[in-house]
């Protein structure tokens, strides 16, 4: 009688305080039936990775609007790898120029959701990976 639940960490790396999007996505994913952990503001890549590991999440969703994504997102992917946790899937959202997306993906960020993405797209993305994360 296994009862597997997908667990998702919504993290806010960097210094930007705009958490409207992060809070919305956290709540909407809860309403979609997932267990969502939210970190609050100003998280370092290390604390996001430690949290992801302790909470044994399947996904880490990163929200960033300040433009620091090119340095912080790949740093988090790298730290997950260093901690034997490269199976945790990383996705991101926020003010992220189209031009930056291919490079972020190349560095291991699985998907980027730009402003205006309907929540359904995020849920579809997560569901498409359900098997991969073993749930």
């Amino acid at each position: 009688m296994s009862d597997k639940k997908i667990r998702i960490l919504i993290g806010k790396p960097g210094l930007d305080g705009h958490d409207r999007g992060a809070k919305y996505i956290a709540r909407a994913l809860k309403d979609a039936g997932y267990e969502v952990i939210y970190t609050g503001l100003r998280q370092t890549p290390q604390s996001i990775v430690n949290t992801a590991i302790q909470e044994d999440v399947d996904f880490v969703g990163l929200s960033l609007l300040s433009g620091a994504h090119n340095s912080l997102f790949p740093k988090i992917v790298e730290l997950l790898k260093e901690n034997d946790a490269e199976d945790i899937i990383v996705f991101g959202g926020g003010v992220i120029p189209e031009d930056d997306i291919p490079n972020l993906k190349k560095q291991g960020v699985e998907e980027i959701f730009t402003p205006g993405t309907p929540i359904k797209d995020v849920v579809d993305f997560i569901e498409s990976k359900r098997e991969k994360v073993g749930k």
Binding site: L15, D16, G67, A68
Partner: peptide, 22 residues
């Protein structure tokens, strides 16, 4: 930029990635 707004110098560890961005 955000480090200035939160009282960190550009050489502070917390400022990585944020200097001059917003």
């Amino acid at each position: 930029d955000l480090p200035t707004q939160i009282g960190y110098d550009s050489d502070d560890e917390m400022s990585i990635g944020e200097v001059g961005k917003v």
